[in-house]
Design a protein around this nucleic acid. Structure first.
Length: 207
DNA sequence: ACGAGGATGCTCT
DNA sequence: GAGCATCCTCGTG
């Protein structure tokens, strides 16, 4: 009921990233229900130097080479989960039609359900905002790891859904965070004023 | 409140 | 060996 389907994720990554703000991320893994309202996302696209998988298509033959990020050309709605800095799992959902490279990174959510289990998984979190105010943190809180890589996120146990109780909030836009390439593209979206938005600084404002 | 530095593993040169 | 879509701890003000 209200689960976002493959046709939804088949849109332009930037469109999906903006529209996912206010939607719910839900996990029914291991008998617990966890839910979070998405408050921060980033879009990654083909012909985008920050995107894993950029440059895998041979310009002459049109054929795909193997390499990191080739999964981003796969079916929309697929999970793309990878290890960042050797320690943190980051959750993406594959976007754009199959055969086109793209993904949306889920950077932060506001906890809605299952906070007790989130606290157990996030032992380092002293304040409630630290449960899920960053891409590595929310993945840990939700128990997302490599076992969700290349799994469909259009049905349980992990999926996205509409939010009936979706609160009003303005959506702001900025450069993406933590990247050194593609800094000029304002493809980060976040809910204005929401305390669960991550602490990162947009890449075009760093010294 | 804020910034520096370290942890840690995978991919590509 | 360098470079990473990060997070945590421990300094200093």
């Amino acid at each position: 009921m209200g689960i976002l389907q493959e046709t939804y994720f088949a849109q332009n990554s930037v469109t999906v990233a903006r529209d996912l703000i206010g939607k719910l991320l839900i996990s029914e893994h291991e008998g617990n229900r966890l839910a979070g309202r998405i408050v921060e996302t980033e879009a990654y696209r083909e012909d985008d130097p920050a995107c894993h998988g950029c440059g895998l298509r041979d310009e002459v033959s049109g054929m795909l080479r193997q390499g990191r990020g080739v999964e981003l050309y796969g079916p929309p709605g697929t999970g793309y989960v990878y290890l960042c800095y050797g320690m943190h799992w980051l959750l993406n959902v594959v976007t754009e039609p199959e055969g086109t490279c793209g993904a949306v990174l889920i950077r932060a959510v506001e906890p809605v359900d299952g906070l007790d289990q989130m606290r157990k998984r996030r032992a380092a979190a002293r304040r409630e905002v630290d449960l899920t105010n960053g891409p590595g943190k929310l993945a840990e809180a939700f128990g997302i790891d490599r076992t969700f890589h290349e799994r469909m996120l259009t049905r349980p146990p992990v999926y996205f859904s509409e939010d009936r109780a979706r609160p009003e909030s303005d959506i702001e836009q900025s450069a993406r965070i933590g990247i050194t390439q593609g800094v000029d593209r304002p493809w980060r979206f976040f809910a204005a004023g929401n305390p669960f938005v991550s602490r990162g600084t947009p890449s075009d404002q760093r010294s």
